[in-house]
Design a protein around this nucleic acid. Structure first.
Ligand code: MN
Ligand code: MN
Ligand code: ZN
Ligand code: ZN
Lengths: 147, 147
DNA sequence: GTTATAAATTGTAATGATTACAAAAATGAA
DNA sequence: TTCATTTTTGTAATCATTACAATTTATAAC
């Protein structure tokens, strides 16, 4: 499949390949995820698409996201317990969340390994890394205040 | 303060040192956290203590845990978005959660470091690592079935 | 095109952990 | 004791997510 940086250009074809029928809603949601790259909540997606799809229901967004996760098209990112965020990029990477503005960014993990005796006898299916702090913008603002 | 493996033996004294008045509930909750080491939810703590403190309310458990987190006595562990778990050990370590039985265990991180260009300009305040999979017990059971 | 069946979408109600808040009880100094 | 402060409690509210049934849309056979 034709991609740039792991992003499928042909969204309809990509969904078909993943055995998901490319309905309007599903195409729009995937398109949003791919091009915004902002790790949105279901509600953020709903608000963003409600304009172009006036009949859209929030349940449909949830249904769509659930089918994406099931098919391996997207993954759930759980940082706060108050919200689930969604990510189309399923390769291994971590996340950074700004505790001020709430933005979530990707974190390439250059040297990432978990070694632990405590994993003896276990079967690992997923591992997650996330970091909290001040994003560049919010950090700058904070430093100005403290001058 | 006298401790074994980071566990304060004198719970009342420890709470006083952390500027938390050692009420019965607070002592019992901290005692539970320290000696069970099971990363419980607020509800698990409530159910466990309701017997010895018949008047206990769930709100008090939440209040207590909130004050512990504020004072740095405990930390919140967020793996599922359906529950917050609590941990008294605030040194750096990861967690493992079994997707079958739901148990949560500590994960010593022998060689743990996150290096990423993406952290440029940010200020990090917390980092979290967690792993999902089958615990030793559930893994054994699973293997037996597949023989 | 009509009809029949399955799939997708919607609206509303339910769930459940957590929080808000005000009343009641306990504490502790004066 | 008395009064103020802190702690604890019970109940109601919040809010993201799920359950579920009804409606709409898509698909294929006739
Ligand atoms: Mn990501
Ligand atoms: Mn732990
Ligand atoms: Zn920020
Ligand atoms: Zn298990």
């Amino acid at each position: 499949m034709k991609t740039t940086v792991g992003v499928p250009l042909d969204i309809v074809g990509y969904l078909k390949g993943m055995k998901i029928k490319p309905s309007l809603i599903r195409v729009k949601v995937l398109d949003y995820l791919i091009h915004k790259r902002n790790h949105p909540t279901a509600d953020m997606i709903f608000k963003a698409l409600a304009g172009e799809i006036p009949t859209l229901s929030k349940t449909s967004v949830y249904n769509t996201l659930k089918s994406f996760v099931l098919a391996g098209v997207a993954q759930e990112i759980k940082i706060e317990n108050t919200e689930v965020r969604y990510d189309v990029f399923t390769n291994v990477h971590g996340h950074f969340k700004c505790t001020v503005c709430g933005s979530v960014e990707d974190l390439k993990l250059d040297a990432y390994n978990i070694t632990s005796d405590d994993l003896e006898g276990k079967k690992i299916t997923e591992h997650h890394v996330y970091v909290l702090g001040f994003c560049s913008n919010c950090n700058k603002k904070k430093n100005k205040k403290n001058i």
